[in-house]
Simulated assay, not measured.
Amino acid sequence: MDKIIIQQQDFDLSTEIALVKKNDSDIGAVVSFVGFVRDLDDATIQKMTLEHYPGMTEKALKSIVNQAKKRWSIGNIALIHRVGDLNINDQIVLVITSSKHRQSAFESCEFIMDYLKTQAPFWKKEHTQNKSKWVEAKNSDKSQKNRWE
């Protein structure tokens, strides 16, 4: 059973992995990715605000997960993305994929993250002591996504 959720509260990696594995004796591999808020530009980022478009965002996340399931033989997936105000080192996103074999789990997890960065309608605003600015999409994220096409 897949778990796709957008929430403000934090998540626990161990709990989510246990849920992905629950009642599935075919799982031979679980791969997880956790993304964190970090200070990229030495601009002393104090926090990041993540916003989304309710309804549209969930639909986009489900589409990404469905694309991964069509490409790889994978089992359960957990995809949790946080919104709201987050501080440096806070967890932002969790992707967990499971499969019989590790390669499918690794590749599908990476695919989901690459598509999340470019296809999901989230907006990020960085806050420093002096200003706030919206974060633009990076060309490197687009290149990572394009390799799957």
Rank of each mutant, 00 (worst) to 15 (best):
M1L: 08
D2F: 13
K3S: 13
Q8D: 02
F11S: 01
L13M: 02
A18I: 03
A18V: 08
V20E: 06
V20I: 04
V20W: 04
V20P: 05
K21A: 02
D24W: 01
S25F: 04
S25V: 02
A29V: 08
V30G: 02
V31S: 01
F36P: 07
D42P: 00
A43W: 11
T49M: 12
H52T: 07
H52I: 06
P54M: 08
K59V: 10
A60D: 13
I64H: 00
V65I: 10
N66A: 15
W72G: 12
A78Y: 11
L79S: 03
H81A: 05
R82C: 02
R82K: 06
R82M: 04
N87M: 12
I88L: 08
V93Y: 02
V93T: 07
T97Q: 10
T97R: 09
S99M: 09
H101I: 06
R102A: 08
Q103P: 05
S104Q: 15
S104T: 03
F106H: 00
E107K: 12
E107Y: 06
S108Q: 12
S108W: 04
C109A: 11
F111T: 09
I112Y: 09
I112M: 07
Y115V: 03
L116R: 00
T118A: 00
T118G: 05
Q119K: 15
A120G: 10
P121F: 01
K124N: 10
E126F: 02
Q129P: 04
S132G: 07
W134C: 04
W134L: 03
V135Q: 10
E136D: 09
A137M: 13
A137R: 07
A137N: 12
K138W: 09
N139G: 10
D141V: 13
S143M: 14
